[in-house]
Design a protein around this nucleic acid. Structure first.
Length: 362
DNA sequence: AATACGGGGGT
DNA sequence: ACCCCAGTATT
């Protein structure tokens, strides 16, 4: 029996339940695979269930507005995935009669679908014998075949894709691809792989030569910089000013409080006032800071401090954002906020019990 | 080929 | 702290 058969047998016995596995409709596979990019299964499951309940078909997704889709994506990150999925749904409905292309090449013409998702949909939804090459696959086969190509280099994908292509078969393409990824997630883990339970260990070069800690070869990432950020929660007649970030940038289409990076020789309160004026044209004055949030993005880290601010003068304008809007505090949860700003929203809305002093002593 | 792009979980 | 995660688009 070949190693691929051992893999499939193991998968039949050990695969996890996932909502999109119960019924691999192309639309479900599509949505799940977009969500699963750089995101663990456990994180995706609740988002997937809510998303399918809210947008049960590609037509309903296409008809939704982008803000609704971003709100459904709120907290999941990589928001270009949501913007591309929404745009792609409209393309599929307008140009493809609501049907996804059913080939590896055709799928990759759809926005947001690259080599991985193209192969995943082609194999899982359409039984095409195309191998997926994700982070799990790179790790599993670097070890299994003793490949020493740095898996952060594009070349590693080419090498492993071409070696898997003659192995994968149409009849079992869906399970074959999912089995490798499941093996990578459950057994052939980055640290301390569970080789004693691995169905491929009998032929695994890394295991047989005791090199599982040396493979895969992977270049280290540079340390990310840290920035101090101040944001202004500007109050006027009981409303708060928020801005919508421009599309196709970091956190595009999401809402935020005006603010930015602290400059040298500047207090955080001064940062909040300067940035708020630069971004909105308003004249404001900081009253008090009320929360500090630490947050890590992909390429940098921030410490964000939020200040309650008093409005003095000016007409709010969208100098650096797509749109600015005065909203009631109770309306804040209707808007999609990225994580760090969401924590500021929660602090605004939280009852300030601890800050209150008793009205009278007994 | 290199870089930008979120956020959560594991060690 | 650092690494990793069912990657893609852009340069």
């Amino acid at each position: 029996m070949g190693w691929d058969q051992h893999l499939l047998t193991w998968f039949n016995a050990h695969q996890r339940e996932m909502p999109w596995r119960s019924n691999p409709l192309p639309y479900w596979v599509w949505v799940s695979e977009i969500m699963l990019q750089q995101t663990q299964v456990a994180t995706v499951i609740p988002y997937f269930n809510r998303f399918i309940a809210q947008f049960p078909t590609v037509e309903i997704l296409a008809a939704a507005n982008q803000q609704t889709v971003l709100k459904a994506w709120e907290g999941l990150g990589y928001y270009s995935r949501a913007r591309n999925l929404h745009k792609a749904a409209q393309i599929v409905c307008n140009d493809h009669q609501g049907q996804l292309p059913d080939t590896y090449e055709g799928l990759q013409k759809i926005p947001g679908i690259g080599p991985y998702v193209g192969a995943a949909i082609a194999s899982i939804a359409f039984s095409q014998p195309v191998p997926v090459v994700d982070g799990n696959v790179l790790r599993v086969f670097s070890r299994f075949w003793g490949i020493e190509t740095d898996i952060t280099k594009p070349q590693a994908r080419v090498v492993i894709f071409s070696r898997l292509s003659p192995v994968i078969q149409a009849k079992t393409a869906s399970n074959f691809n999912q089995a490798i990824m499941e093996l990578g997630a459950l057994i052939c883990t980055p640290k301390s792989p569970n080789c004693t339970q691995c169905p491929l260990s009998f032929e695994c070069i890394a295991f047989q030569t005791n090199r599982t800690t040396e493979l895969p070869v992977k270049a280290k990432k540079a340390a990310t910089p840290h920035y101090d950020i101040a944001v202004a929660v500007i109050w006027k007649d009981g409303k708060i000013l928020i801005g919508k970030r421009k599309p196709d940038q970091l956190l595009g289409g999401m809402w935020e409080f005006p603010g930015g990076k602290q400059k040298p020789n500047e207090s955080l309160a001064q940062t909040a006032e300067r940035e708020a004026t630069e971004e909105t044209g308003l004249e404001i004055r900081v009253k008090d800071g009320f929360i500090t949030v630490n947050h890590a993005y992909t390429h940098f880290k921030i410490t964000l401090t939020a200040f309650n601010c008093e409005y003095f003068a000016g007409l709010a304008s969208n100098k650096t954002t797509d749109e600015v809007r005065w909203v009631d505090p109770e309306e804040l949860n209707d808007y999609p906020f990225p994580k760090a700003n969401k924590k500021v929203v929660e602090a605004i809305l939280a009852p300030k019990i601890l800050a209150q002093t008793p009205l009278f002593e007994v």
